[in-house]
Design a binder for these strands. Sequence first.
DNA 1: TTGAAAGCGCTAACAC
DNA 2: GTGTTAGCGCTTTCAA
Lengths: 364, 364
Amino acid sequence: MPRSPTPRRRATLASLAAELKISRTTVSNAYNRPDQLSAELRERVLSTAKRLGYPGPDPVARSLRTRRAGAVGLLTTEPLNYSFSDPAALDFVAGLAESCEAAGQGLLLVAVGPNRSVSEGSAAVLAAGVDGFVVYSASDDDPYLPSVLQRQLPVVVVDQPKGVAGASWVGIDDRAAMRALAEYVIELGHREIALLTMRLDRARPPGGPGPALADTGRLRNPAFGVQAERIGGVCDAMAAAGLDPGALTIVESYDHGPASGGAAAEVALRSNANLTALMCTADVLALSAMDHLRARGIYVPGQMTVTGFDGVPEALRRGLTTVVQPSVDKGRRAGELLHLRSGVPVVEVLTTEVVRGRTAGPPA
Amino acid sequence: MPRSPTPRRRATLASLAAELKISRTTVSNAYNRPDQLSAELRERVLSTAKRLGYPGPDPVARSLRTRRAGAVGLLTTEPLNYSFSDPAALDFVAGLAESCEAAGQGLLLVAVGPNRSVSEGSAAVLAAGVDGFVVYSASDDDPYLPSVLQRQLPVVVVDQPKGVAGASWVGIDDRAAMRALAEYVIELGHREIALLTMRLDRARPPGGPGPALADTGRLRNPAFGVQAERIGGVCDAMAAAGLDPGALTIVESYDHGPASGGAAAEVALRSNANLTALMCTADVLALSAMDHLRARGIYVPGQMTVTGFDGVPEALRRGLTTVVQPSVDKGRRAGELLHLRSGVPVVEVLTTEVVRGRTAGPPA
DNA sequence: TTGAAAGCGCTAACAC
DNA sequence: GTGTTAGCGCTTTCAA
């Protein structure tokens, strides 16, 4: 079965030039600088290319020569379906993708995840053909961060960890935002408050897979700064109101599935039957908690106040009282900082807004 | 401000070798073949590398030399947040990412979207440093497909278009699956049926942005084969039951936002007040339609039967009668076929299952 | 165990 | 408008 002009060896720019008896430069120009040669010659080059099955300049070779990979690497802590199951994370990626697209850059999802060992993951980071990295919401002790830094490429950290030397940072003031929300809850009259958080540390807590009362050790030294900040914000508000932050019931949800919030709410309720408010560090947690409360016949906000964090569409639709943060902008901004490649690390704090929905009211 | 050993010029493998007065081969081996040199020497190489700030072999140069980019390109028709807003698409990407990860390959989201012109998008495809492409659910006349093919790399098409020469294909038998579902609906006694579809063509329909009764022209020659197949499946079932497929009310939803299904349902109801069943070519459409019906006080399934397609988690949770397709597997399989790089195009049809939920019943 | 030589395919200076 | 030259940084025979 003769397959049309398939030379045994793939055509290259050089072979095309030889065929046409012109220089490689001219062929290169035909692709990259159309104005540098006559239209006829260019046409002749392009048509010969088609005839020879030359696919155009090899991207890798070009990258080597120009020192630009044309892509941005995205490092996420969690496996993809996991991290993207949170609409806020998805919005972030969408924003990042948008800015990459506008800059003509690809977005490389670096193959790091639970299927591979840390050394394999590091190898993937070291082997990524990119011009810079975006690190999304990693723990302070993320095992891949050192490899990213080793590359000596521009890095933008989103959300956490804060203070990575030489890297830009984009995020929000989690502590202040959460404090503002907590102040509102306290103002409503709540005194018995529980806080449902996402994981505080990379290491699994001892007590099994489900949500559990947060371990003091984990609370004291959380690897995920964002959670720590949000907890801190609630404590700040309590302290400012003359309440004892130590009385706050904190439940950590290590794995986040669609029902984690409900399970965490259950743990909180069991731990303290007098609770009147459930504050959550993520909307997905709050929404799930609300579902659970409804199933248990606990009315929101009449019997229980529930708040979230993020401002994902479903939360706003359902009237959740929450902090809205600009997730898409975060992604966009992160990309822009990378594409700027000014070299100077930038810290950018985006604004948030407390949205008073229909899920917070005075305690019964 | 003296920044630690920052040579004016970035260290390279060659400069490291020169510094150590050993050959480049040996340095290369220190990174790639630890067994090819003594542990001490390797240690010396690595520590000198650290001292000089050498980040390890340049990925791009290595790719040029080894002829392997170490990444797979993913071409999606829709902008990211758009295509990922469908959980089925997200599952697909998760599956693909998983197989890439297992193969140690990165996943490059190619910068193609509405922010860039077609020629810019094509340039991005031509410039992507990848070893192969996955094309996800593109239209028959997708403007980037030719560029993908031009690259002469392994290609796996997912869902549509079918029959791309030289490319593998992974998908399901949409027609048979939809037919089976329609047979069930007809069997229940439904005669007045509407079908709500996703977009049938890349070009916007004339009648404005919202869902509209499908244009005959678009129906006759849909650019999105999957929709065509699913429509065909319903028609097959009707014809087999002695019904006139021409009586089917078809509403096309060009843009899909979270409320599109409801809007489409409204169009269908207005067009035919006697409808007793709303079949949808996607769960997201069906779920939104159900919300709309509830808001209108139309009881499902008592007054209206609703069916979906895909089997996304929320649909199953809500008891939607639908076709479950293995979206994650689709992604995984697509990746595997690419990593196989056998060269021989493969066609792989995954199995589906009709799930009889709580949203289909006999007509009132 | 190490080294020398030979490119991978391309583009950027610079000359003509 | 076109060609010549010189690498980009690396790996891979092959030979020592």
